[in-house]
Amino acid sequence: MKNDKRGRKVFFTVALVLLFAGGLTAGYLYLSLGTGLQREQEKPSAAQVAQEVQGSSPLKIYYPVNGYLQMEERVVTPMILTREDAARATVQEFLKGPAGMLDPSIPPDTRLLGTYFGADGELFIDLSDAFRRNFQGDALTEYLLLRGLYESLLSNVSGIKDVRLLIDGNEIETIGGHMLANVPLGRELITNSPQSTGVSNAANGISNGTGPE
């Protein structure tokens, strides 16, 4: 009888301890997950960050990634005040390559040598020879490299009609042997083909694995 009473006491004590521990764990999990979700929902865009952080500007950069163009928002400091600043910052961010990529198709060690605005709305981008020398890739890689640079500049620099490329101050015929580099990029790269007119969908791998029929 006495043993029975003692056993029940132990049982209730253990049950109380377990209930308390369970409550603590559930509370912890609720708080940590809840705030995590909240944090995710409240994650501001690059543009919002740029507005809040005084002296910085958001840029849209189009990178060639696995046969497609992928847009990334980048925030740069100091604040972009002129078109020259915008052109320079855009190219510099483009040359850094996409975030977290080990093997980007952007030719490594390329330096921006200068940016010039032509009288007819053409923007000249002068890059070091590494852009040509270190390019490794096929026709689609070269197309996306040039298209990504072109789309990035058109998105961030106001009032330009087209983009022209210089290597060490000179026009050269080609970067990788498949595309022309001595013509306005927009007129070469933008075509009537429904498969290659947009950006997200075109520069867009365009490969569908099926024939033209």
Partner: peptide, 9 residues
Amino acid sequence: VLYTEIPLP
């Protein structure tokens, strides 16, 4: 085998 159309000069 992938089929692609891009401008090729």
